[in-house]
Each structure stands twice: as structure tokens, then as C-alpha cells.
Amino acid sequence: MTTPLIEIKNLHANIDGQEILRGLDLTINPGEVHSIMGPNGSGKSTLAQVLAGRDAFEVTEGEIIYEGKDLLDMDPDERACEGVFLAFQYPVEIPGVRTTQFLKAAINAVRKHRGEDEIDALDAVKLFREKMKLVDMDESLLKRAVNEGFSGGEKKRHEIFQMAVLEPKLCILDETDSGLDIDALRIVADGVNAMRSKDRSFLLITHYQRLLDYIVPDFVHVLVNGRIVQSGDKGLALELEKKGYSWVEKEPAAATA
């Protein structure tokens, strides 16, 4: 039996006193691609934020074990250094901080955590160039402030580019497909697929099954009201697409794969 990369058990989380996650369970093994789908307000993005360590959310019950360690006990930056990566639904603009500066800071933080030396400036440039190709990102973006004035598509590609540079173990994609046209979606998906490996796991959070045409998941889970009510394979996503979310909302926790 494989050791899970991450185990989420009975997770409850609040924001401003309002309970969003109500007993969520999820286990992801190394190399697996999971997709979480659900209607608006079901708690999808909350899950992503809680995994990344956003302190606006309060975890009231449950635990998250990541590589045998208590994830909830770690600061956001510690989680990132341990290999948890969140591709933001709304990447933040940071005026005045150049993208290259930002990436170097991030790479060096991760390296330092692993006890490695800082990256050499030339190697950094080489690494950036190589990874940019993966998502067909324009090199000029590197010189600009982080996400500032980037188009919606550029922001999303930038997220995947960062993922490629930082090489995390758990990649959480929070509605990375939203706002992308079909070409951009394909580019992003290709980037993600290129990164799939037996040691790296993915959690794709999405509202539509469209993304799953390009990144084929091993498991699909349906999140309703802060809990996973159904799990299955890719077929579940197609069925959802056909029948809409009302279908699962009516049939709570009927079948669990």
C-alpha cells in the first residue's frame, strides 16, 4: 500500500463565523490527479485556501496530514517550501515587485528550506526561459511587476509557469480554467500534463468539466455544501455536465467510489 501524499479528515472550516466546510474527507496518493467539482458556494475555493494556509479561514475540526506531518500546524510559506502549491483563482498584483525578483525569492526560499545553496543568477535565467516555453509565456512579463497589468490569460499562465519553476509535490489549481479561451486553456493544460509524474499529485478545482477534457483526472469528486457527496471517475464529470448540479444535490452521498 502506498503512503498517501495528503489525507484530509473530517475538515470543518469557518469564515466570519459561517461554516463553509462541513466534514470533508479526501485522500490523494502520489501521482494521482483528483478533480473537485461543485456548484458556486459549495466550498471549493475555501478548500484551496485552507490547504494553502489562508488565516481568514478558521479550521474548527478535523485534520490534514501531509507526508505524515500536520499541515495545519505549518505557516503558509512553510507549506509552500514543503511542496504545496496553489495556483490562485485570482492571482494578486504586486506593484513594484518584479516577476524575476519574486521568482528568485521563492526559489531561494524553497532551496534554503531543503538545505540547498541559492540559485546562481545565470541558472535562474536559464530555468525561467526553459519553463516559460512550457506555457508559451512572453519573456517580457518577467521584467514587469508581479501580475500587474497582466491579462486574465497571462495571469493564469503565469501561475502554471511558477508551478513549473518551483516543482511542487501537490499542485492545487483553483479554477485555473475560468476566464480562459480555448487556446489558452489548451496551453495551460499542456503545461500541467507535461508536469504529471508519479511523484506529483494534482487537485483540480473547477466548476466546468471542460478543463477535464484536457487534463484527464483519475478521480472526480463532487462537493456540495462543504462535503464530498459523490466520487467517481471521469464519467462522473460528464454526467454532471449533462444533468447539472441539482442532480447530486438531490441525491446526497448515494455512491462513493
Binding site: A52, G53, R54, D75, P76, D77, R79, A80, C81, F85, L86, F88, P91, V92, I94, G96, V97, Q101, F102, A105, A106, A109, V110, H113, V146, Q162, L166
Partner: peptide, 17 residues
């Protein structure tokens, strides 16, 4: 938070900003 989510410590994130 965005910077920390990329592994940068809180102090360094503040410094950068």
C-alpha cells in the same frame, strides 16, 4: 499571502513589499 504561498517567509515578504 501570495508571496508566502510561494514559500517566502513573512518577514521577507514584508521586506520585499
Amino acid at each position: 499571502f501570495y508571496l508566502r504561498a510561494r514559500g517566502i517567509s513573512e518577514a521577507a515578504a514584508r521586506g520585499m513589499l
